[in-house]
């Protein structure tokens, strides 16, 4: 079964992860721009990071037969840092028009401050201007209130709700998101956010329409195989293959292809691997025999 992980931070993962993901059936991923754990001190740091998402990381994924897309934005946490926020907003238009950018994101609330709201709104306006869908991060703390405020802001700005994916939902926020016209993402995590079995129960209760699951794997305790693991759990709990396919393929493809930056014919097949390729003279190999596929 081919699968899509629509939220995973591969810059902080290893090539062993890429191999395991490819073996498990993941053929396409979206890597949202986020914060790196260490706060950045200047806008130039963001330029290099965005370039990395669009360049080296896409190449690295391709070396394992995985199509890599990304979303670009100033994340909610660093929206609070006036030393970088305005300067990053200034450079966004140039990145939002690049190939492989399938949404503006992650935007949203973290501490739910005024600065976060102002920058959240401005980036949603940019998404409208550049005709991109929007990926909204919901906060860890005070999540329900943050989700309600996010939906309110989407409506206030007259953003078509089918162009908005609200992520990291749980039992309490999912009904709110489904009541709006927005798509509902779920990050399946080892300890926090959402677990496989809880996810399967939610699918049984709410169906598969506008439901998306992802691993949100990053530099923390997380698992890049959570999408395939959730598929197994859903199957085990009697959810139909059609519903599972809707959730782990059709929905993310439908949502992100609204960007016009995802070729629907291309994405149906896994890209051939050619590990003899180099990026800026760099290979992902360290002396191994390169895999070259010719399917």
């Amino acid at each position: 079964m081919k699968m899509f992980d629509p939220h995973i931070h591969m810059t902080s993962r290893t090539t062993a992860d890429y191999q395991a993901m490819a073996e498990a059936g993941i053929v396409a991923i979206v890597e949202p721009a986020f914060w790196l754990g260490q706060p950045r001190t200047n806008a130039g740091s963001f330029e290099d990071y965005f370039n990395g998402l669009l360049g080296w990381e896409r190449f690295r994924a391709s070396q394992f037969g995985i199509r890599h897309f990304c979303t670009i934005a100033l994340n909610p946490k660093e929206a609070n840092n006036p030393k970088v926020s305005e300067a990053v907003l200034d450079i966004l238009p140039r990145y939002l028009q690049k190939e492989g950018v399938v949404a503006v994101g992650e935007v949203g609330y973290d501490d739910q401050t005024d600065a976060e709201e102002r920058i959240f709104a401005r980036q949603m306006e940019m998404a409208m201007e550049f005709d991109l869908p929007i990926l909204i991060h919901t906060p860890h703390r005070d999540k329900k209130r943050g989700t309600i405020r996010s939906i309110d802001l989407v409506r206030e700005l007259n953003i078509p709700e089918e162009r908005v994916l609200i992520d990291h939902n749980n039992e309490e926020t999912l009904p709110l998101v489904l009541d709006s016209g927005c798509w509902a993402g779920h990050s399946i995590y080892p300890n926090t956010k959402m677990a496989e079995e809880r996810m399967a129960r939610l699918v049984k209760q709410f169906g598969s329409e506008r439901i998306i699951v992802n691993s949100a794997a990053d530099w923390g305790v997380s698992d890049p195989l959570k999408v395939p693991k959730t598929v197994s759990k859903m199957r085990e709990m009697g959810i139909s293959e059609a519903d599972i396919t809707t959730i782990v393929w059709d929905n993310p493809v439908a949502f992100f292809s609204q960007s016009g930056n995802m070729d629907l014919a291309d994405i149906e097949t896994r890209p051939n691997i050619n590990q003899t390729q180099l990026y800026d003279g760099n290979s992902v190999l360290r002396g191994q025999a390169p895999i070259v596929e010719n399917r």
């Binding site: 703390r141 005070d142 329900k144 209130r145 749980n170 039992e171 309490e172």
Partner: peptide
């Protein structure tokens, strides 16, 4: 906020 957090934990 704390009350909402308890609701969230109980629901999960």
């Amino acid at each position: 906020m704390a009350d909402d957090y308890v609701s969230e934990r109980e629901a999960a």
